[in-house]
Amino acid sequence: MKRVLVTDDANFMRTSLRMMLERHGFEVVGEAENGMVAFEKYKEMKPDIVTMDITMPVCDGINAVKLIKKFDPDAKIVMISSMGQECFVKDAILAGAKGFIVKPFKEDYVIQTLEKL
């Protein structure tokens, strides 16, 4: 069972993702409301996959990817982005994110993306 850390500043989004993932047999081991918390939780529980929102307070998704990648170069991070954030997604990929999902997301694609990592 893949262990996932969900990062988003909106509780609503975290819960949507959590419910989606848990329906498909992923284990959501934690939720983080910003990049810094995500980094701390990553160190603590070493999830298999991190989903990462881009626009967040305190520490945004791009910086979080950099932090996590520095700590663990093999980390698998999927960005959660909106239309219009192409530039940030590109930066995230350059920083080492494995993939991305575009909001509003389709359950199928979310699962496909995470299964494949």
Partner: peptide, 15 residues
């Protein structure tokens, strides 16, 4: 902060 809040609402309401 304002930008981020609107961004979040945009995302949630789109969902």
């Amino acid at each position: 902060e304002i930008f981020r809040i609107m961004h979040t609402i945009k995302g949630s309401s789109a969902m």
